[in-house]
């Protein structure tokens, strides 16, 4: 072996770049970095305690007729509304075909343990489907043009079933996962 300055070996170095062993090494190193990156990215996901705090029992027996309560689950607002007979009738009488996001009132209710519907209680998300503002409702004295909720940010009107009727919002107020623990308690989860 003779010692020659490395600069004269540029050709050999270029050959080397295509050498299998270098490609394999680079690939394995890259794979390892990607695995570490996965751990660094996965930690952005909700932590176990955050996930665990995503359900709530709500006592519906104390909601006044025609009123509503607002609850926070995992920081998100939800409306639980005790509808009057008139409001139920208004929600049911709408021609679904004319709606922007067609849904019947019954589709927006969850059944009790015995399979029947409790039409007096409506549970919806409390975030406007337009840009996430919290609409005002009976407690604020403004239920909009259709008796449900009114979003003051950009003027979306929801009816007594929480469906979008007027304004920029594209969708009805979503109905969360909930079930009747008993006749007077519902469990809402994200």
């Amino acid at each position: 072996m003779t010692d020659t300055p490395a600069h004269d070996h540029s050709e050999t170095i270029d050959d080397d770049r295509r050498n299998f062993i270098h490609i394999a090494t680079g690939a394995v190193a890259f794979g390892g970095a990607a695995m570490f990156a996965w751990a660094a990215i996965d930690q952005w996901n909700p932590a176990a305690d955050t996930k665990a705090a995503s359900a709530l029992d709500v006592d519906i027996s104390k909601i006044p007729l025609g009123g509503e309560i607002r609850v926070l689950i995992g920081g998100k607002p939800f409306f639980v509304r005790h509808r009057t007979q008139g409001e139920i009738a208004a929600a049911e009488s709408v021609n679904v075909a004319t709606l922007r996001d067609p849904q019947t009132d019954d589709e927006r209710l969850h059944a009790k343990a015995d399979g029947t519907l409790n039409r007096a209680i409506l549970v919806t998300s409390g975030s406007c489907t337009h840009l996430g503002c919290v609409p005002v409702g009976p407690a604020q004295g403004n239920t909009g043009d259709f008796g449900g909720w009114y979003c003051p940010c950009h003027g979306s009107h929801y009816d007594t079933s929480g469906r979008i009727r007027k304004g920029p919002a594209p969708k009805n107020l979503p109905v969360p996962d909930y079930n009747y623990v008993s006749d007077s308690v519902i469990n809402i989860s994200l």
Partner: peptide, 22 residues
């Protein structure tokens, strides 16, 4: 196991790159 494999590969890479330099 991963680091072991990478060590072996790097060793061969290293030997190959330096093979003409004393």
């Amino acid at each position: 196991v991963y680091l072991g494999i990478l060590t072996i590969l790097l060793w061969f890479s290293y030997k190959r790159i330096w093979r003409n330099v004393e």
